[in-house]
Amino acid sequence: MSDRIIVPPPKRLGQTLGILTVILVIVASAIFARFNIIEVILGLQRGGRILARMFPLPGWFGPLMETLQMAVTGTFWGALLAFPIAILSARNIVDVPWIRVPLRFFLNILRTIPAMVFAAMFVAIFGIGNFSGVIALVIFSFGLVAKLLFESIEAIDEGQVEALRSLGADTLTVIRYAVLPQILPQYISYTLYAFEINVRSAAVLGYVGAGGIGQLFERALAWRRFHEVGELVIVSFVVVLFLDFFSAKVRRSLI
């Protein structure tokens, strides 16, 4: 009875190989260059500085990064917030009507308001700057992801929920074991979808003074520097296309 069963650990070949390769590369390069790690980092920094002087970054680079950062931050917080709200809005997990009904109403209203309107509103409240933009994107992604997610939650296999309840699980435990595994692919997919939209919105948010590359657009147009406008259009176009492509690819592999 008390014999312990020894079970070999799971074979996670890809993961193990990946980690091994990274370690190998680091060790090999360290030995090869006879550098210690601090020297390597210092060296990289120096190299980076030289590189930057050799190829000066264009003026749109900073605002572009700011735009992407806004999109990432906005999507992240929006999607995170969406999860508990989606659980409360779904009929099949918690089911408290006086919470669910107003929440759904609220989500439906939220969905009818474009991100730009939020941005303009928040610029009026919080002032000009990327904070207003980020808040607008948080609210927009929250509304989008929460709505899609609660519909997915209502479509899960209830048998798994019932099984977990029968084990003596409380609601949080049920969510962790019977809900989360079932909706995780959709959840990630909706989040990426929100991200795609947010990158596009973030690119024009600057127009209402909410930070990012849109500010450059506005300025270039105002000063009638049309070659700059053209450059910005191409940069935004390429970046959006590139992110859309990868995001869509990941999303397809999830479903």
């Binding site: 798994q160 099984a163 019977a178």
Partner: peptide, 12 residues
């Protein structure tokens, strides 16, 4: 409790 449709968590 066990069920006709097994009801184990398929993605775990």
């Amino acid at each position: 409790m066990i069920f006709q449709s097994f009801n184990i968590v398929k993605r775990m």
